[in-house]
Each structure stands twice: as structure tokens, then as C-alpha cells.
Design a binder for these strands. Structure first.
Length: 930
RNA sequence: AGGCCUGUGGCGGAAUUGGCAGACGCAGCGGACUUAAAAUCCGCAGAGCUAACCCUCAUCCGGGUUCAAGUCCCGGCGGGCCUACCA
């Protein structure tokens, strides 16, 4: 049949026409608008379901086919839950501040506000072309002043708060201030009292408690990006973005006291339904270690405190190491000039090495002896103190006791510098300590006695508690829990970010902008390029008129500072993560002008446990997901939100990869340089065999696929269906353009079931085929259960099977003879609609339905159709299937056994041998042992 | 180096909780329709042995538990992700 004879076929053009038509209608109708409590159309009798996609960063390149994978999954669940009678919140918006937009702007010379807006418009267009059921009325971007106003407001709430350790939650800093006045407490080491302290001293003291605080920190400075980076943004000593070297330097920066929440962030991982791998990554990032603090006396200096997880090995501590940045190093240099030159040289050398260098130069330990000793509190011996860069200032106390016999790093260092090694633990596996390597596991203490007590004979766990008890009793140390998690560096030397609502006066004291004066708008700058320099210079400093203002103009409360006081604005901006820390809350009530989210909307949509289903990539396992949990917990403590955790259930979609080709030497070849032959792939230019491998999509391999091209060739429904049919949502899967035709043909069959391709008229069966009816019920049941478990690939397979069964053979002359009845078609379309909404909406309308299929109820299932009266059971003889018997579905084991043993084929296979044992698993199988 | 995940036809993948391995799709092969092709429809299709049935082998490799293992356990090998001097 020619195209001329089938003018009403479902092809790319028809798909495109009907898809864009329905998309336009959904948009003008506000078809997926979710009503908030209090609105007229709100239905309080329905349960809520909040389903969220991870906040996209709209890059200039637009969507690639990886983006719609998660979005299609959430869209299917959204449409399904709607049909199941839920009030569904399914919003979309833009995470639009950040480094890439600014870098792109600097490259092109176009202002980031302009490029970001056009990238957003492009993303929105692409998403809308895929027919996603977003409530677009709630859309916003983090760059909208009405949004970042509240980002600044939340930051101020943190600024005005501290962590009350006693109560285990955040409290207003004003309460702490009042206590300081009341106790007239000592606020520094010199025992200066609050009442006699200067304003600067008081502020500095309170800054050591604020949740958002300013302080001098060793930061990760990335000269190539001209900004500092958070620990989390550094991978293998290089910037996560761009892979540039990173150096450490001290800098006065805004920080978040996330460490105050370390224990709760760890504990509450038990409350969420997240992938185990992600929870493990977060808990390892938080890195709780139990151990002890031990004080070592250093003649003239005082106490040198170390942290150790193995206090039981204290008797084996034969030397100590401090980080090059440790104050003791400075102290030694000042006191012993004859050694200081070499020590200073080492310190300078180690400081100038980037983290990359430190790791690149293998694990060869470096260090230098300080020429002083400390007293091991357990043995009373004097042991040497060294400095070495394998000890990090940022962890613990920046000093360690070295137990070379039982720690690999200490052993390597001791071996290199010929330091003494003493065994104090006998390994529990019985292996003798040879001195060839460290034995790090648990065991039984030995060589661990002094005149006061002994650990000898105690297992590691008891030895540890005994040692801690002795340290505590003799005031030489105490139990201590340490976290790997560091406070969160929250300043960036960037233009394209949220300004901090804070100013400094001439004394250097900081003052908050009052809430009423928010937002602090990002000033228009024509030169926003980062300043390349050896030290961080924020580009906002170039906005001199904006920076230099008065307290009154900036919006500082007159009670804090006289309005005429000249002040300087903070010129750092917030990092890209800021906006994504709370966007899910704003969606609940995105147009609210008086609060970041109304209490009513927040309580309704967040409910008991927060967002019901959150889908996004696992690359955010520790960054965004940890930061957002932290903000959420602060807001919870401060009474602003009602749940302890933001995201009840999290799911990571896998990556969509692509094919590339590999030469014999392992190098990769771009897809356009290869052609396929009958017996394999050939690199065209050199006529050599290559093998097909799976690779990430990349421009250089020419294997990037965009939704736009797929939509043009097949339509959005086919793209959605293909992405869901590729395999399990969580798995990484290779894109194979050739496979798309399978799901496209499926949709063509669906169309052909309902529409006569020659005339365009409806073609429905007059009478229902009982076998089809049974299969239809089973398919709908399977689709529903598969959607609930996010197994979309098998749901689609079931629908394909149904459609294949119902498809009319060509020989059938009267179209009304085969296929589905009107009622069957109605039910089938509703099951398919979440996956392929446009074609279903179109056919639904052609069935004569007046309202959108998205608003129709999920089809009901006749439960009696799900079970058969009898089933065929496989019968194994000696564990191998030899026969099948038909038994009543609900037959019990005895009945089944009788039927099986009387079956002719079974008897033949048994060859006259009597059954020794018959194992019957009703509804499954039978195994006869002879 | 350690931790977690993973390995099933030519390819993507199915397989409740240990119960008939390979659903469904792609690619392939055969047939119908057609002057022919495309499209459509109907079949075949893990490997070996067969005319066919049967049978044998088969879920990375080697052991084990079990009436029964793709699934559980132990030991290897390959792929992926995370962490990587955190005391």
C-alpha cells in the first residue's frame, strides 16, 4: 500500500502536528495547574503527591537525550497519580546562577543575564515540546530577584542563629547575646570579659557561633577559575569544573556551620527512602570517627593535643607529627633560629605544592624533624616531633601521635626516616609482627604497661575503653568524636551569583541588611570578568557606586547603625548551590510576595515526609543533597518548615551513554569515521577493524543525540517511549538510534487499531474477544504495578504484547471484526496515556470524549480476569523438566501430586521407578525424585 | 589500595521471594500481499546434534549449599561508580 493509499497513517508529520496542537491546548488551558489549599478549585478530599525533578541548570547547549530520561519518568508517575486521584505537584524551574553561565558570557561578551535568559527559553521550549505535565504557573529561576530575595532571607536567618549544643538545635543569636551579657562571660583566651570587650571583640566572639559566619579559613584557591572552591568541588586536587589545580591559602570568607549538624545529618539518613549507595556516600562524607584526644607535654610550648582512633596503641607512639601549618612549627622557628631555615624551607615547599602535586608524587613521605620532643603520657618517654605534609591541619588537631607498628602511613614514614617502631598489639589472626609492615587490625594489647595500669592481654575494644578511662582520670585526654565534614565555604569571587545582604563599616564590623530591604539586587556590570590575580578579587568590587554606600541606603536597620554611616557592601557572592538548597519549598507557593512559602502551602505539599518522589542523577549524592538537607534542618529548627527531611524518596536515573568505536590499540574513534559491514565495524579511513564500545556522549566522538532531532524524526511520544523502553531507569544504557523504530512501529499499530489509515475513520471491534479482554485486564494491572515500582520498560513490553495480540491480520477484510471494542480502546488508551500522552489524547478525543484523558480516571480492572481456572505446571524428574500437566489453579499439593503421578508422560519419564520424594510448589512446579 | 554496584543470545534487555532462562524490542531469516520493492501482515530464531522430534550443553570462570541456582555462599577474572595520606 502506498503512502497515497494510506493518507491517515501515524507518521512523523502526523505525530508532530497532533503533539504541538495538544501541547498548545494544555498550555492555554493550564491543564496541569495544581491548586493550593485555599484556592477555589482545590479538592481537599484527595491525597497529595509531590514529585520533583532535580533542578536543571540551563546550559547554552540545550537538552541532550539524557535530560528527558528522568523527566519522562516523573511525568509518567505524575500523570498516573493524577488519574489515581491524587493532587499532584509537579513543577519545573531553573538553577541559573553560577560559573558556567558567567564563563560563557565572558567568552562571548554577552551579559550573563541575556545568555541565561535565552538558555532558559530554549530549555523551556524543548521541555514543552516533549509534553511534560508541569505546572508552568509555578516556574521561576534562581536569578529572579523575587526568588533570590528569599535566598538572601534564609541566609540572614542562618546569620542570626547559632547552634545550641545543649538543646541540639538552632536558636536565635540574640538569645546567646543576652546570655553573654548575663554571665559576663570570658570571651577569649586572655579571659577578657564580655562587659569589658570592644564591639569588635563581641562580634568576633558571636561569629564563632553563628550558623552563617565570617572567619579566616584556609580555602581552596583556584587561580584559573579566579575563585575559591568548597571541598566538595574539588576532585583529586583539581577543580570539579575544568580540572584546574587548586592551592590552599588563608582568606576571610563567609562560611556555613554545617558541622554543627553533622550528627543529625548522619542519623537522619535512616529516615529517608534513598538508594543505599547514596546514603553510604553521604555518611562517608560526613565521616564520623570515634576515638580520643590525648595531650602530650612539650617543654616550653605546653600541651600538644592529638586525635586518635586508636588510643589503645598509645604505648606504641614513638614519635609525633604536626602539619606544616601547625602553630608549633612557627613556635619552633621563632625559638630556634639555627633550625628554622630548613624548617621554613620545608613548610614553604609543602604549602606551594598544590594538592595535585602532593598526590602525583606517589605516596613517598616527606618531612623534617623539628628538633624538639614531647613526652608520651603512657610511657613517659621523650619522643621526637616532626612536621610532614601527610598530616593535614584541617583535620582533627593538625597533629598526630605516630604508631608505626600499627598504622601504614606512620610505618612508611618511620621506615623512611629510621624512626623507632614498637609493637603494642598482637594481631588477632595470629600472625606474628615481623617489622616488615604495619598490622592495623584489632588484636590483643601487649608491651602496654606502666606503673599505674596495663592494657596487656586486653582485646582492642577493651584496651581502648581502659585507655580512655585512664586518660580521663589523669586529665591527659578524653573521649572524642570527630567528623571529616568541614564547614561549608559559602563565598565566591564571582559576579553571577546572589549578593550577600551584608555591609561592613570602617572598623570592619559586619551589619545585616534588614529583611524589609531585601532583595539586595545584583548591580548591572558591563565588566564582570573575573580578575586574574594571585589572590582572590571579587568582580563586584568594580561596581564602586554600589559597593560604597551608606547604612541607610543599603537598608541596615537604623537601630544597628546610623543611616549616614559610610559602609562597604560585601562583594563576594553566594555559590551556585545556594539557589538549589530550597527551590523545592518555593514551588509550593512560588508567587508568594510576603513569605518564602506560606505555612499552609508548605504543610500541605511537604506533608509528613517531604517531597514524595525526587528523581535526579547520582552526581549530586553529596553536594546538592547534603546542602539542601542542611538548609532544611536549619529551617526546621527555626520553625519555618514542618518536616525534618526534605526528600522522602530519592531515585537516581542511570546515565544514557552512546556507542563509540575502539581501535586495537585502545584509542577511540568517532562514530562518523566508522562504517558497518557484514562482519563488523571498519574505520573507513584506514580500513581497519574496530570494536563497538560504550562511551559517554561527547562532541569529539560525534555521538551526541539531542531530543530535537529525535522529535523531528519520530515525534515526542516515540522519544518518551524509547527512553523508557531502553532498560531499567536506574541503569546506565547505551543510546541506539536503530532501536527507536521498534517503539515507533508500536505507536503506529496503536493508531492503526483505532483509525483506518485509508479513510481516517474510527475502526473499532463490534464484539469483545474474550482472550483479548483477559489480556487487556492483565496488561493494565501490570502497567499499574510496574509504574509504582518505576519499571517502565516492562510496562511498555506488556502493552506491546497486547497490541500485537489485538492487531488485525491483513487478510481480515472487515476492520470491525478484529481489534479492540470502543470500551477496550478507552481503557487501553488510559493505560498508555502516561507514557505517550499526545497520541492517546488525540485518539481519546476521536472516541468522542469531551475532556482531557489526563483528567480521566485510571481504568478499572476485573479481578476475576487476572486468574485462570487451570494452569500448566512444569514437572521435573530428577530436576529436569520432562513434562507439563494441567491442574486447577487452586489445587492443593496432594491433588497436584495425584495428577502428576497419573500422567502418562510423567510415568514414561519415571520408567517404572517408584517416586522417592515429590516436591510440589503450588502454582509453580513439581519435582519428582526417583 | 579500600568500599559499593555489575557481568544473561549478534545488540538493548526479561525472569515475583531460589521454581520452565532468554518475555518485549532491534538487527537477521522465511512466507503472504505486490509486476517488483517499500510498507503491512503471518511465521522462525541461544549453541550443538538432527529431515524433524528427542537429547546434550548453556546466564564471565572455578568450587559449594539445595529436590531445584541467572538468583544464595566462597574464591578468581572483567566492567562501572565512589573514596583516596581524614590519624
Amino acid at each position: 500500500m502506498t503512502a497515497h493509499e494510506t493518507p491517515y497513517r501515524y507518521d512523523a508529520a502526523r505525530a508532530g502536528e497532533l503533539e504541538t496542537r495538544w501541547q498548545a491546548k494544555w498550555l492555554t488551558d493550564g491543564a496541569f495547574r495544581a491548586a493550593n489549599p485555599g484556592e477555589e478549585s482545590f479538592d481537599a478530599t484527595r491525597p497529595k503527591y509531590y514529585i520533583l525533578d532535580m533542578f536543571p541548570y540551563p546550559s547554552g547547549a540545550g537538552l541532550h537525550v539524557g535530560h528527558p530520561e528522568g523527566y519522562t519518568a516523573t511525568d509518567i508517575v505524575t500523570r498516573y497519580k493524577c488519574m489515581r486521584g491524587f493532587n499532584v505537584l509537579h513543577p519545573m524551574g531553573w538553577d541559573a546562577f553560577g560559573l558556567p553561565a558567567e564563563q560563557y558570557a565572558v567568552q562571548t561578551g554577552v551579559h550573563p543575564a541575556v545568555t541565561t535568559r535565552s538558555a532558559i527559553d530554549n530549555f523551556r521550549r524543548q521541555l514543552q515540546r516533549l509534553g511534560f505535565a508541569y505546572d508552568w504557573s509555578r516556574e521561576f529561576g534562581t536569578i529572579d530577584p523575587e526568588y533570590y530575595r528569599w535566598t538572601q532571607w534564609i541566609w540572614l536567618r542562618a546569620y542570626h542563629s547559632y547552634y545550641d549544643e545543649a538543646r541540639g538545635c538552632a536558636r536565635p543569636i540574640a538569645e546567646l547575646n543576652a546570655q553573654c551579657v548575663q554571665d559576663d562571660r570570658a570571651i577569649d583566651a586572655a579571659s577578657a570579659r564580655w562587659s569589658s570587650a570592644s564591639e569588635q571583640q563581641r562580634q568576633a566572639y558571636l561569629d564563632t557561633f553563628r550558623l552563617a559566619y565570617i572567619g579566616v579559613q584556609t580555602v581552596n584557591w583556584c587561580p584559573a577559575l579566579a575563585t575559591v572552591l568548597a571541598n566538595e568541588e574539588i576532585i583529586d586536587g583539581r577543580s570539579e569544573r575544568g580540572s584546574h589545580p587548586v592551592y590552599r591559602m588563608p582568606l576571610r570568607q563567609w562560611m556555613f556551620r554545617i558541622t554543627a549538624y553533622a550528627q543529625r545529618l548522619l542519623d537522619d539518613l535512616a529516615l529517608v527512602e534513598w538508594p543505599d549507595s547514596t546514603r553510604t556516600m553521604q555518611s562517608e562524607w560526613i565521616g564520623r570517627s570515634e576515638g580520643a584526644e590525648v595531650q602530650f607535654k612539650v617543654e616550653g610550648f605546653g600541651e600538644l593535643t592529638v586525635f586518635t582512633t586508636r588510643p589503645d596503641t598509645l604505648f606504641g607512639a614513638t614519635y609525633m607529627v604536626v602539619a606544616p601549618e601547625h602553630p608549633l612549627v612557627q613556635w619552633v622557628c621563632e625559638r630556634a633560629p639555627q633550625q628554622s631555615a630548613k624548617i621554613s624551607e620545608y613548610v614553604a615547599w609543602s604549602r606551594n605544592r598544590s594538592d595535585v602535586d602532593r598526590q602525583a608524587e606517589s605516596r613517598e613521605k616527606t618531612g623534617i624533624a623539628l628538633g624538639i620532643t614531647a613526652k608520651n603520657p603512657a610511657t613517659g618517654e621523650s619522643i621526637a616531633i616532626w612536621t610532614a605534609d601527610y598530616v593535614l591541619m584541617a583535620y582533627g588537631t593538625g597533629a598526630i601521635m605516630a604508631v608505626p607498628a600499627h598504622d601504614e602511613r606512620d610505618f612508611a614514614f618511620a621506615a623512611r626516616f629510621k624512626l623507632p617502631i614498637r609493637q603494642v598489639v598482637a594481631a588477632s589472626d595470629g600472625s606474628a609482627f615481623t617489622g616488615e609492615s604495619a598490622t592495623c587490625g584489632a588484636g590483643v594489647a601487649c608491651n602496654s604497661s606502666n606503673s599505674e595500669f596495663t592494657l596487656d592481654g586486653l582485646a582492642t575494644a577493651q584496651a581502648t575503653t581502659t585507655m580512655i578511662a585512664w586518660l580521663t582520670a589523669t586529665q591527659r585526654g578524653q573521649r572524642r568524636v570527630l567528623f571529616r565534614l568541614r564547614d561549608w565555604l559559602f563565598s565566591r569571587q564571582r559576579y553571577w551569583g546572589e549578593p550577600f545582604p551584608i555591609v561592613f563599616d570602617e572598623r570592619g564590623m559586619h551589619f545585616p541588611i534588614s529583611e524589609q530591604a531585601l532583595p539586595v539586587q545584583l548591580p548591572q556590570l558591563t565588566d564582570y570578568a573575573p580578575v586574574q590575580s594571585e589572590t582572590p578579587v571579587p568582580p563586584l568590587g568594580k561596581a564602586t557606586h554600589w559597593v560604597n554606600t551608606t547604612a541607610g541606603d543599603a537598608g541596615v536597620d537604623a537601630k544597628l547603625l546610623d543611616p549616614a554611616t559610610p559602609v562597604r557592601r560585601e562583594t563576594n557572592t553566594m555559590p551556585g548551590w545556594a539557589g538549589s538548597c530550597w527551590y523545592y519549598l518555593r514551588y509550593c507557593d512560588s508567587k508568594n510576595a510576603t513569605r518564602f512559602v506560606s505555612r499552609e502551602a508548605e504543610q500541605y505539599w511537604m506533608g509528613e515526609r517531604g517531597v514524595d518522589l525526587y528523581i535526579g542523577g547520582s552526581e549530586h549524592a553529596v553536594l546538592h543533597l547534603l546542602y539542601a538537607r542542611f538548609w532544611h534542618k536549619m529551617l526546621f529548627d527555626l520553625g519555618e518548615v514542618s518536616t525534618v527531611e526534605p526528600f522522602a524518596k530519592l531515585f537516581h536515573q542511570g546515565m544514557i551513554t552512546s556507542f563509540a568505536f575502539e581501535r586495537a590499540d585502545g584509542t577511540l574513534v568517532a562514530t562518523d569515521a566508522v562504517h558497518e559491514t557484514a562482519d563488523g565495524w571498519i574505520e573507513t579511513a584506514v580500513n581497519a577493524r574496530v570494536t563497538r564500545v560504550i562511551a559517554k556522549m561527547s562532541k569529539s566522538l560525534k555521538n551526541v543525540v539531542t531530543p530535537d532531532e529525535v522529535v523531528a524524526e519520530y515525534g515526542a511520544d516515540t522519544l518518551r517511549l524509547y527512553e523508557m523502553y531502553m532498560g531499567p531507569l536506574a541503569d546506565s544504557k547505551p543510546w541506539n538510534t536503530r532501536d527507536i523504530s521498534g517503539v515507533f512501529r508500536f505507536l503506529q499499530r496503536v493508531w492503526r487499531l483505532a483509525i483506518d489509515e485509508r479513510t481516517g475513520s474510527l475502526t473499532l471491534a463490534r464484539t469483545a474477544d474474550p482472550a483479548i479482554e483477559r489480556q487487556l485486564n492483565r496488561s493494565i494491572h501490570k502497567v499499574a504495578t510496574d509504574i509504582e515500582r518505576l519499571a517502565f520498560n516492562t510496562a511498555i513490553a506488556a502493552m506491546i504484547e497486547l497490541v500485537n495480540s489485538a492487531t488485525r491480520p491483513t487478510a481480515m477484510t472487515d476492520p470491525a471484526d478484529g481489534g479492540l471494542t470502543r470500551d477496550q480502546m478507552s481503557r487501553f488508551l488510559r493505560a498508555l496515556a502516561p507514557f505517550a500522552p499526545h497520541i492517546c489524547e488525540e485518539l481519546w478525543q476521536r472516541l468522542g470524549e469531551p475532556t482531557s484523558i489526563a483528567k480521566s480516571p485510571w481504568p478499572t480492572i476485573d479481578a476475576s480476569q487476572l486468574v485462570d481456572e487451570s494452569i500448566a505446571l512444569p514437572v521435573q524428574i530428577q530436576g529436569k523438566v520432562r513434562a507439563h500437566v494441567t491442574v486447577p489453579t487452586n489445587a492443593d499439593a496432594a491433588q497436584i501430586e495425584a495428577i502428576v503421578l497419573s500422567d502418562a508422560k510423567v510415568q514414561e519419564a519415571m520408567a517404572g521407578r517408584p517416586p522417592k520424594k515429590v516436591i510440589v510448589v503450588p502454582k509453580r512446579m513439581v519435582n519428582v525424585l526417583v
